[in-house]
Design a protein around this nucleic acid. Structure first.
Lengths: 337, 337
DNA sequence: TTGAAAGCGCTAACAT
DNA sequence: ATGTTAGCGCTTTCAA
């Protein structure tokens, strides 16, 4: 097979530059001391030959391979991709490459993927969950540093980055209160998710700080659907409750709520202001009116995890659960006043 | 740093098995002839030592690295992830690992990612587009086999896998006709996308095969939104046109159309049957009624591209644009009769 | 059928 | 400041 392989090796560069291989290596790596002139010259030659060091040769004797593995719980989940983008971005800047594997929410498959990653000698692993409910640690299955994203590890010795639901609810409630709303309802989602619980208790506490109480009680759990938002609003109105704002634990719920409010002849935001959560633009932007919501900064979360893994690989891990700050995106559903 | 590295090398296995390194290598690789008994023995020892060959050492002298690169145009695009899952799945089965990079729809960044992938010595590259509109070839930028997914390469010498819009429209129209519909409208999307054009001309031709013509003309282009679906239906009704079915070039359009039909007091599917496209379940399943639609089998498309790249790496490419078959998912929006 | 030896491309002592 | 020399872990002639 007459393959014309890349084949520009350090030896080629050294020969062309008239130095030894070792000198060429030193010149290019900037580690050891080399005369400035030779360095320049070698670099020049290397560039003109389009030399790229063979990462395999390098990895063979450096114990660092320049690749990390990402194990996603479920790539199809809409929270995963933004985080993955952040991870990819940060590692790209660090010029280490990202091997992607997906567990499809199957623990057998997950173990298999972990073995594959170890066999590939990755320097570290990012475990990317598909909800912010904590998950089992994998430290007993691997021998490299691990950082957890979105779903924290259940082992507090691990380094995890997850979203700050408590800050999110604070932002949401403060926003509503600052706009003069006092009679606030909080509609949460499926209580089997930490997010549902944390966002509802967070809202409750935020209200307390203002000396207020949630209208309609502190247990409006359901699921994450538009339907649940509609149902809930309908029931509240039926019950004759008065409220001037709703905090919803997801944009989907918020959208359902807004539609039902319209059906009940309540104006948004004039009569009832609505805040959502997630900033899922499909719902938050295209709702009528567009929904004020909490953006979890998932891409930034991804970058944070990547930075942590880079540190951990260098031997500087920061164990514990780190909460990545969120931000409020104001839109028309709360604008007036 | 007292690192207890993986460190189980072939040498360890050989020593423990009482054979030479060369023999151990042969026994484990099954290439060369080794006595059956020794093979078994070596394999046994390797297993008991949990030996995994160092892929870097192997890659150093085999010219094949066991990694491929995926260059996505835009990971955030909803069509990309299903394809990526298929790709990942197929390469997992082939035990080659997938390095993920994302171009964020930026050609500068794309070139950069390609250089990175080449530097990592990938055996091949999958270029994953974010629409089915064809795109420039990258063959001049790389020296390994490339296969294109979703968006075909503009160079017919390349191997591309894209979706079969013409089969999709045939399925849709045939389905409607077989259900007794004759006065069929076709609403397409943004005409700057091949998909919009191909789906509308495909529908036109499918109608012709049945000796029928599209009601409302053959140029209902707009955008891919619910709004456009609504507007269009509204205009058709205003114009006093009679129709008993609508083929929409996307589920989003279909959902808008269905909602407007309801507002116009037309029943779906009794008065008007509706077929969508994409099987974006968020819209197709949760619409009322759920929408009959065309599923592009994107995951299968991903697998097909992966298989092609594997072949191409072996030196057996299949140049040209390959159309991956789609399928119709019948749901309530066309059920009656 | 098995083993000895040479090298893949690079880095890192050690010498010069 | 530069060059020489060993390897890293594996595959692959070539001999035995």
């Amino acid at each position: 097979m007459g393959k014309t392989n890349d084949a520009v090796t350090l030896a080629d560069v050294a020969r062309a530059a008239g130095v030894s291989i070792a000198t060429a290596s030193k010149a290019l790596n900037g580690k050891t001391v080399v005369r400035e002139a030779t360095r320049r010259h070698v670099e020049e030659v290397a560039r003109s030959l389009a030399f790229t060091p063979n990462p395999f040769a390098r990895a063979l004797n450096s114990s660092i391979t320049g690749t990390i593995g990402v194990l996603t719980a479920d790539l199809a989940n809409r929270f995963v991709v933004p985080i993955l983008l952040g991870v990819e971005d940060a590692f790209g800047a660090d010029s280490t490459s990202v091997i992607l594997t997906d567990a499809r929410n199957d623990s057998i498959r997950e173990s298999h993927q972990l073995r594959t990653l170890m066999a590939k000698r990755v320097d570290g692993i990012v475990v990317l969950g598909d909800s912010d409910t904590s998950r089992p640690s994998i430290t007993d299955q691997v021998t490299v540093p691990v950082a957890y994203a979105f779903a924290a590890s259940q082992d507090p010795e691990d380094s995890s980055f997850t979203t700050d639901n408590s800050q999110g609810t604070d932002l949401a409630i403060d926003h509503l209160v600052s706009r003069g709303r006092r009679r606030i309802v909080a509609i949460s989602g499926d209580p089997t998710f930490s997010a549902a619980v944390e966002r509802l208790t967070g809202a409750t506490q935020a209200m307390q700080r203002h000396g207020l109480q949630l209208v309609g009680g502190e247990n409006l759990y359901g699921d994450w659907s538009e339907d649940w938002g509609r149902q809930c609003v309908h029931a509240l109105v039926e019950a004759g409750l008065h409220f001037d704002a709703i905090f919803c634990a997801s944009d989907q719920i918020a959208r359902g709520a807004i539609e039902q409010l319209r059906d009940e002849n309540l104006r948004v935001p004039e009569d009832v202001a609505v805040v959502g959560y997630d900033n899922w633009e499909l719902f938050s932007v295209h709702s009528r009116p567009p929904i004020t919501t909490i953006d979890m900064n998932l891409q930034e979360l991804g970058r944070a995890v990547a930075r942590e893994l880079i540190d951990a690989i260098k031997g500087q891990p920061h164990p514990g659960v780190h909460r990545v700050p969120v931000r409020l995106i104001p839109r028309a559903s709360t604008t007036r006043l």
